[in-house]
Write a protein that binds this DNA or RNA. Structure first.
Ligand SMILES: [Zn+2]
Ligand SMILES: [Zn+2]
Ligand SMILES: [Zn+2]
Ligand SMILES: [Zn+2]
Lengths: 165, 165
DNA sequence: TATCTAATGTTATATCATAACAGTCAAGAG
DNA sequence: CTCTTGACTGTTATGATATAACATTAGATA
């Protein structure tokens, strides 16, 4: 799906590299342990698959890999694992892409935003506490009680912006 | 789909009421005229359908209505009209709902945000110039050139928040 | 062990969206 | 005026995303 001719470490700075992926997986496991979550084999493997990927993966892309490794081969297998990860903050859903991506700091309670490159489809998770605060306030001003939000930006990542110039 | 037991004017303050809808439609027509856009019968009717609706409508809901009125009965008919409206700023796509909603101020160039009620599914368009600016800056700080963004909040609208209490 | 619950797996189907191509129509060129 | 052209509308067919419903299995509990 994605091409990834980018120098490693640029297009998705936060979770590129096997070492980073391992570190994040370890964090996620600790987090699950602490919270009494059951990070079963499919779920754990699904998280690994997301971590191994650059950019975000569609549910069916995850499913392909799971099926190839002997897990169930039907959509609910992937959707259930992905939804579990999202519900417990170990992954995020990227609505614009109908795709999922591993959270880069699963232990912190946070609201995430994403920067999606139009050209290379890289997805970068950004922290947006201030944006979320502003949004909560603005919503509150019209009587709306904000609970969750989707904040996704589309444009050119630094690498692609450079190439385009 | 939506229930709408809300007092008119509350759940979707900006385009509720036939008078409001007519006013917005007139604006949209003027805007199209000025920009040399062809607001053909299907497109115009599609916009009306969105304006008549409370909340956002899925493409197939729009299609049903169009088909019932003698327009084409196949998905591309609805998607083409909807995409036209979105491209020209007369409507917006609400990603979280896989749905579309008429723009409440089609003549102004703007970035929109939406507040979506979890309970009654009302959708309120909000202006977010300051949020967008903040986001563009934050993105720029990591070298990302932001072009478009999706900002959608989910929670309880003022009416539903009141009822829940 | 017997029982209960959460998790996994399956089949089937719902929902959302687009590709590809044929017919229509109005504006501009000759 | 007629021909060409390009935008628009329509169709069939298919692709892509997501969930409902139910059978089976594996862990925890009593
Ligand atoms: Zn995260
Ligand atoms: Zn890029
Ligand atoms: Zn708008
Ligand atoms: Zn509501």
């Amino acid at each position: 799906m994605t091409d990834h001719s980018h120098p490693a470490g640029f297009c998705c700075p936060d979770h590129s590299g096997a070492a980073q992926a391992r570190a994040i997986l370890a964090q996620a496991e600790a987090h699950a342990q602490a919270g009494g979550l059951r990070l079963t084999p499919v779920r754990r493997r699904t998280l690994e698959i997301l971590l191994e990927a650059h950019g975000a993966l569609g549910a069916y892309e995850v499913l392909e890999r799971l099926a190839a490794e002997g897990y169930g081969a039907q959509p609910p297998v992937a959707y259930r694992a992905l939804n579990f990860l999202v519900e417990h903050g170990l992954a995020h859903r990227v609505r614009r892409l109908n795709a999922f991506t591993a959270c880069v700091h699963p232990t912190q309670e946070h609201r995430a935003a994403f920067l999606i490159c139009d050209r290379c489809e890289s997805v970068t998770e950004a922290s947006v506490e201030s944006l979320t605060r502003a949004m909560t306030e603005a919503a509150g001003a019209v009587g709306f009680k904000l609970e969750r939000s989707t904040i996704e930006g589309v444009g050119l990542c630094s690498v692609c912006a450079g190439e385009a110039a």
